[in-house]
């Protein structure tokens, strides 16, 4: 997936989209929703680990986007803005309902023990291919910050500078986080390399 670059043209194009949304243009709003709903939901679900809660957060993010339309300042892309709102909402929700955020350093476990059952229901597992299941479980076992960074950059295709903006960290910190996240994911996935690559 080609990564998005923070281009002035794209930001201006998004500003004109938001101007149309502010005029209650239903067609533009529908296109925007169709483009972003699945992506926003993916980020929320990867962060929260629960589809129902992820849908609540996604809905809240779109309500905020709708309310923001007539006051859109055009300083960021719509997608970046949405991911940032979703990120903040998920962090708040995890703090309030899930006993705080997990400690990144406390998750230094042996690789073998990381493959305990994840949150997904057996039904979901049945519907997924083995490859996707392995990848999902490995992602679920990563610390919150690690999987968030990976999803933003490698799944949703954000530039690392945009991902840093979403996560409210510096660009250097994001680069370091990405290196650590990839290292840990590689450690988890390497035993299943053949299965993952279909060999």
């Amino acid at each position: 997936m080609a990564r998005q670059t923070v281009g002035v043209g794209a930001i201006q194009a998004d500003a004109s989209v938001m101007a149309r949304v502010a005029q209650q243009d239903a067609t533009v709003w529908r296109v925007l929703a169709d483009q972003q709903l699945g992506r926003v939901l993916l980020l929320a679900k990867r962060m929260l680990g629960n589809h129902h809660e992820a849908e609540d957060v996604t809905q809240e993010a779109f309500i905020r986007l709708w309310r923001q339309a007539s006051h859109w300042t055009g300083e960021a892309r719509i997608s970046t803005w949405l991911y940032r709102v979703v990120h903040n909402l998920c962090i708040d929700r995890l703090r309030r309902h899930h006993g705080g955020l997990e400690d990144e350093e406390s998750m230094e476990e042996p690789v073998e023990s990381l493959f305990a059952p994840a949150w997904e229901s057996p039904l979901v597992h049945l519907e997924q291919s083995e490859q996707r299941q392995i990848l999902n479980e490995a992602m679920a076992r990563l610390p919150l910050r690690h999987r968030t960074a990976l999803v933003l950059v490698y799944v949703l295709g954000l530039h690392s500078a945009e991902a840093a903006l979403v996560m409210r960290i510096g660009e250097d910190a994001m680069a370091s986080l990405l290196v650590r996240s990839r290292r840990r994911l590689r450690l988890l996935l390497t035993p299943w390399r053949d299965e993952l690559l279909g060999k």
């Binding site: 997936m1 699945g38 939901l41 996707r132």
Partner: peptide, 12 residues
């Protein structure tokens, strides 16, 4: 290979 695997994750 890592990049390919991550990019292949489907949207929700």
């Amino acid at each position: 290979e890592m990049d390919q695997l991550l990019a292949a994750l489907p949207l929700e």
